[in-house]
Design a protein around this nucleic acid. Structure first.
Length: 426
RNA sequence: GGAGAGAUGGCUGAGUGGUUGAAAGCGGCGGUCUUGAAAACCGUUGAGCCCUUUCGGGUUCCGGGGGUUCGAAUCCCUCUCUCUCCGCCA
């Protein structure tokens, strides 16, 4: 959420962001609601002041005079109640409108409507040339008995799966490996609740309700399954005032992700690429505004280090205006080479690092006391260290051998206790 | 799941219907003292919103929501959370 005063003073900047992102948000309506709310509030304040004056006066009055003023107070309070109701209604509309306004954009944001217009910043490693016809991870997962989509569908529906055998070890190894690297960079490990309250969801910028919501809500409770650990970790310090000396706070969390992915289908979502449940390791930082840019770079650096150590070919993307989430001011993705993908470029997104500036912290109410003892909103940044299922599929596809076996990346061998996944003799 | 106790400012903790936005202590900030620091002493110190050039003024907020009353931190209802005991359980 932006600051309403910022919107009032920089209306054109906000309009530009809305236009460049191509989102549906009406600033004029918001401003109209704001001024309507203000005028109601002003007269409400005036009436309350009068009511308080009357209440204070009564104990000083003679018994004979009291009745008259008690009646006056009662009458005034009826008018106040009516105004309060009006104020509630307008405020609700105003709050709703505020939620539709996205973060602003830095001036160097690439212009574009969709992920097609994201900009390649750099590329690491040249994709391998196969001297045989490579299989995709679905085939590999089946032939090596690593992933069972049929069983997942039977138990939980389509787009659920069981991991089996070395796929389980590989996932666990990736978790430990990435946690360890993040720890070395000063990130504190967390395992979070897998559900969160609506206020935390909306504070982080997620919407649990509505047709397009990507969130599973729990029937009859004010709880939803989390779509990323960004949600509970963002909520961890909500309603707190931090000391500047505590910042930056750096967290790395095991992130269980539950997503409805309503309407997402087709070749691009084949196999493990787009599923209802997966895990990742998530990086999160809480910083002062000054530190934001450096923290963003640091998160990206950790991400790149992980994929470099895994020796997977990747490219770093700067995300264009139209492909940014509402909370993100600036965002980088890492895309890994996945030879089994059907798209032309065969790179698939595995991480995403966002600088959300104070957009989340304003809703979550996370502040810090600066050197002048002034309270300011913190910046929040988040990024995927490793998307486990997508990295798993990238490893299967990149490390496959002519004989159908899969080599294990060197950095994972100690965690796995083996260096190769071979066909089991049945 | 049952029974009880509680939730007050950055923290501890008073406060059961009318200058209580809130005692006291701690912490923070400013000052006196000191070569410097500590101690001591003095002063100051919650947040949001609105009006105001400044000074200042108004309003809301004592876990959340609702109610009683001219007036609620204080009374009533309800929800959430914490603690103790019992039950259940990995």
């Amino acid at each position: 959420m932006l600051d309403i005063r910022f919107i009032l003073n920089h209306t054109d900047t906000v309009r530009e962001s809305i236009q460049q992102r191509g989102v549906n948000a009406n600033v004029d309506e918001l401003l109209a609601l704001y001024s309507k709310r203000q005028s109601i509030k002003t007269s409400l304040d005036n009436q309350r002041a009068e009511s308080n004056r009357i209440a204070k006066k009564i104990p000083t009055l003679a018994v004979t005079e009291k009745k008259e003023w008690i009646d006056k107070g009662r009458a005034l309070n009826q008018s106040i109640s009516a105004l309060e109701e009006e104020e509630r209604a307008v405020s609700a509309l105003f709050d709703e409108a505020m939620l539709t306004i996205p973060n602003i954009l830095p001036s160097d944001t690439p212009i574009g409507a969709s992920d097609d217009e994201n900009v390649v910043l750099r590329t690491h490693l040249t994709p391998r040339q196969f001297d045989f016809a490579p299989k995709d991870h679905v085939e590999l997962g089946k032939s090596l008995d690593l992933i069972d989509f049929d069983a997942g569908a039977k138990v939980a529906g389509s787009k659920f799966y069981f991991l089996k055998n070395e796929a389980v070890l590989l996932e666990l190894a990736l978790k430990l490996f990435s946690m360890k690297i993040a720890n070395e960079a000063g990130f504190v490990s967390l395992i979070t609740p897998d559900v969160a309250k609506t206020s935390i969801l909306t504070g982080t910028g997620f919407s649990p309700r509505g047709e397009e919501s990507n969130i599973y809500s729990i029937e009859g409770m004010d709880l939803s399954l989390i779509a990323t650990a960004e949600i509970p970790v963002g909520g961890l310090h909500s309603d707190e005032i931090l000391e500047e000396a505590q910042l930056p706070l750096k967290y790395v969390a095991e992130s269980h992700c539950f997503r409805r992915e309503a309407g997402a289908a087709g070749q691009e979502s084949k196999g493990l690429y787009r599923v209802h449940q997966f895990s990742k390791i998530e990086l999160f930082q809480i910083t002062t505004p000054d530190m934001g840019e450096a923290a963003h770079d640091e998160i990206l650096k950790v991400e790149e280090k992980l994929y470099q150590l895994l020796e997977l070919p990747y490219r770093v993307m700067r995300i264009c205006a139209g492909d940014l989430g509402a909370a993100a001011y600036k965002k980088y993705d890492i895309e890994v080479w996945m030879p089994g993908r059907s798209s032309d470029e065969k790179y698939g997104e595995v991480t995403s690092a966002s600088n959300c500036t104070d957009f989340q912290s304003r809703r979550l109410n996370i502040k810090y006391r600066d050197s002048h003892h002034k309270k300011q909103y913190v910046y929040t940044l988040n990024g995927t260290a490793i998307a486990l299922s997508r990295t798993l599929m990238a490893i299967l596809e990149n490390y496959q051998q002519k004989d159908g076996s899969i080599m294990i990346p060197k950095v994972l061998r100690d965690f796995m206790g083996k260096e190769k996944i071979a066909r089991r003799s049945i």
